[in-house]
Design a protein around this nucleic acid. Structure first.
Lengths: 132, 132
DNA sequence: TATGCACCCTGTAGCAACTACAGACTCAAG
DNA sequence: CTTGAGTCTGTAGTTGCTACAGGGTGCATA
């Protein structure tokens, strides 16, 4: 049998044990069968599912979005465009974050290059924090 | 007198009332004096301090970092380079985040352009989620 | 057989940084 | 005098984990 316990699932997927149990509580993965000693026992399908979850999480999807993706993926004959919609929406969010961070980076670096040393009282950076 | 109540402070700074009270609990701002009716009453200095906090938060500093900045800013005769250090460190973090997001964006957009429609069963995007 | 030791169990509490109530009070205008 | 907006305290919820505490399990080794 290729069943694994939670530690095996953890090393197979790179998801921490505590996090796996959290996903179970959150309903992202179903409650696995148990061994005689009450250890969780996972199938290869469970491994695949958790890999999917890990990968989507790494791509920055929220657990809510992951749930939706899993939901759609479960219905094999459904139209694929719903996934495209989700992914595209997520891409737009990522683009917005990148833009925000880039603007912020710009401000921060301008602040830093304006620093000429001296005491706190006449620090250019602190001035930049306070202006409007 | 130019004292304001919490609502005034909120509109003057763009920080929500609940958040102001949270900052007070967290010790980022000191407990203000109270009116006869037990309303919080803020001075212009309080407004300036909260503006400072808001701006540094908007620049992505954590509350812990904000605390450190406020601490340094309070000692006017101290050397300014500590602030430079903090800001530079923060800039490095921002750069890392931008790099991460950009890599992620790359993957996401590759996935999306690979989609040729059809049913979920042969969806390229879902395949991308599962591979590796 | 005893005894380590690694692994697993449940349940709860904590983290950041807020946000959202509930239920009561205050204050100014009409 | 009432109405409505503003404020008060206190507590619980959010997201996505992470970290215990205090036990049980399973296997190898002395």
């Amino acid at each position: 049998m290729t069943q694994v316990t939670i530690g095996g699932l953890s090393t197979a997927t790179g998801v921490k044990i505590e996090t796996i149990r959290y996903y179970e509580r959150a309903g992202l993965i179903s409650r696995p069968s148990r061994t005689s000693g009450n250890y969780r026992s996972y199938t290869p399908d469970d491994v695949a599912r958790l890999r999917f979850i890990k990968r989507t999480r790494d791509l920055g999807f929220s657990l809510e979005e992951v749930r939706a993706l899993l939901d759609i993926a479960a219905q094999e004959d459904r139209d694929c465009c719903e996934i495209d919609v989700l992914a595209t929406k997520h891409l737009a969010e990522v683009d917005r974050k990148i833009a925000d961070l880039t603007a912020l980076r710009q401000q921060l670096s301008a602040m830093i290059t304006s620093c000429r040393g001296g005491t706190v009282a006449d620090c250019q950076i602190l001035g930049a924090f306070q202006q409007d």
